[in-house]
Amino acid sequence: MPELPDLEIFSRNLEHHLKGKQLREIVVKNPKKLNVSVKELNLSIENQKLINVSRSGKELYFEFENKAVLSFHLMLKGELHFLKKEESPKHSILEMHFKDGSHLCLTDFRGMAKATLNPAEDPAPDALAKEIDEHFFKNIFASKKAAVKNVLLDQHVIRGIGNAYADEILWEAGISPFSSAYKIPVEKLKDLAKAVRHVLKNAVEQISKTHPAIISGEVRDFLKIHSPKKTHSPSGVPIIIVKTGARKTYYTEEQEIYN
């Protein structure tokens, strides 16, 4: 699943290619993945100029000149494609055709990716919001007995962090992913807040350097802990992998557990 750093680069590249272009037509191949009727979507954004592409949490926002916003959530395997006019990709959910001949398509072979017209404002902050500090975590964790990793993955608490980056953040902060959130001391919450910002911003920089034009997929080769290709952390401690359902957690004995 693309996480915050991937989507941040996607949004920048999409804005570079599409900002200022007028939407000629929107073709919906899977209406079930829309929150409104195809007719309402057409009336809202067809013939409108795209003025901004941004990211919020794990969603991409396409804002048009009439203030209408269309958001994409790629879910686990959704992808975006720039297309030539004659192309018609498999597993298409929605296609945006611009008057200059540009085409952007949202696909998902699992059929899970979705589009939302004028999404409601989400009360949970983005992981890179200024408010994500030790005070935020102190207030949030006070009533959370769940494992800290599960809390970080809860998009109703903080938006944008997925499985891989949760492991990276917790390793950098020196906190075991199995710690009870409410048991983590305040001084470690400072480390956690710093790790959230540093890990995510560094990932954006790394992806931008190695895959500057990317609009789909995941780039993970620079990760320090969450990598099946690595056996030890940068400090030489063995990486432990625990599988829970379909999710794997990567961590080391360097991380202190609070229970």
Rank of each mutant, 00 (worst) to 15 (best):
K19Q: 15
Y61D: 03
Y182N: 14
D191Y: 13
I215P: 11
G162Q: 06
A129F: 01
E218V: 13
L14C: 10
N52D: 13
P123N: 00
V204P: 06
I239M: 10
E87I: 00
S88F: 02
E79W: 03
E87V: 01
A164G: 07
N42F: 00
G162H: 09
A193F: 02
E172P: 00
K248T: 09
A246L: 09
S176E: 14
H91G: 02
A146E: 15
L23Y: 07
K84H: 13
K188T: 03
H232V: 08
L34H: 01
E65T: 07
A68C: 05
S88G: 00
I9C: 08
Y251K: 02
P89N: 07
N150D: 15
V28H: 05
D100P: 04
G245D: 12
Y250V: 04
F98Q: 11
A213S: 15
M75Y: 02
N35T: 03
G236Y: 09
I169G: 12
K29T: 11
Y182P: 00
S233Y: 13
W171P: 04
Q22F: 01
G160C: 00
G236K: 09
K29W: 05
G57H: 05
V53S: 03
I241M: 13
R220N: 08
I9D: 05
L7K: 08
I51C: 08
L106Y: 06
N66Q: 02
C105W: 01
T116N: 02
L7S: 08
S227P: 00
